[in-house]
Design a binder for these strands. Structure first.
Lengths: 111, 111
DNA sequence: AAGTTATATTCGCATATACGGATGGTATAT
DNA sequence: ATATACCATCCGTATATGCGAATATAACTT
């Protein structure tokens, strides 16, 4: 499948946006070591089942997760585990940025 | 500065969300090779100046950009250029994912 | 001080997103 | 067929986000 730069840019921002939610970030990390059922994820995140289901659905629509049914359960897993590595890199950089520039985040306007 | 896992998680999702907008993604990439003035960025993105200014402001509030005034102009630059490398990694992975699973994104529900 | 350039902010509006609770659907078991 | 377990979707609501147009602020010039 050929993909233009514009399409890639769109996908890129869409994926970043879908990661840009604490619950969804937690879901991705929870699946770091393999597939889990919805119910298990509900237990881990401790939020209502419909909430988890909606976030999982969004992540799947954006290609980050895939599903597999086993009886009545549905197991979600990462489409590409390299995503976690990338998120870890980002987290590491952010960690350093926070420690270095300390209170400089959210600083006052330039004027 | 000590930073808890929760705080880091918050920052992480906040930063991802701020990257999750096409304009802001374009702004970050535009600044890949050094600082640029707001007006220059307006020319590159070809969107109204207030729109650019608002997106820049958000990116700065989230720590991704820093500013420096030079006369009447304000130059924005990346706080940490490693961010671009991370975004490139993600873009590369997404590119491969799209090419591999072709039309599988946005596929139909599991039921 | 008045004018000019560059940038930031405000306002009103439209759209998108997230949530809880209820409901709907699917698969297995009895 | 009924019951149960598991998951997805709908509904109404509250909040967040993005935009264009107009306006405000800051710095430099004359």
């Amino acid at each position: 499948m050929r993909v233009s730069l514009d399409e890639l840019e769109m996908l890129h921002s869409k994926v970043c946006r879908s990661v840009g939610d604490v619950r969804r970030l937690q879901l991705l990390y929870a699946l770091e070591n393999g597939a889990l059922s919805v119910n298990t994820l509900v237990g881990i995140l401790d939020v209502p089942q419909p909430t988890v289901s909606r976030h999982l659905s969004l992540l799947r629509q954006n290609g980050l997760l895939t599903t597999e049914r086993a009886g009545t359960q549905i197991f979600y897993s990462l489409t590409d585990t390299r995503i976690i590595g990338i998120l870890d890199n980002m987290r590491q950089v952010l960690h350093e940025m926070v420690e270095n520039q300390s209170g400089k985040l959210d600083e006052m306007p330039v004027g």
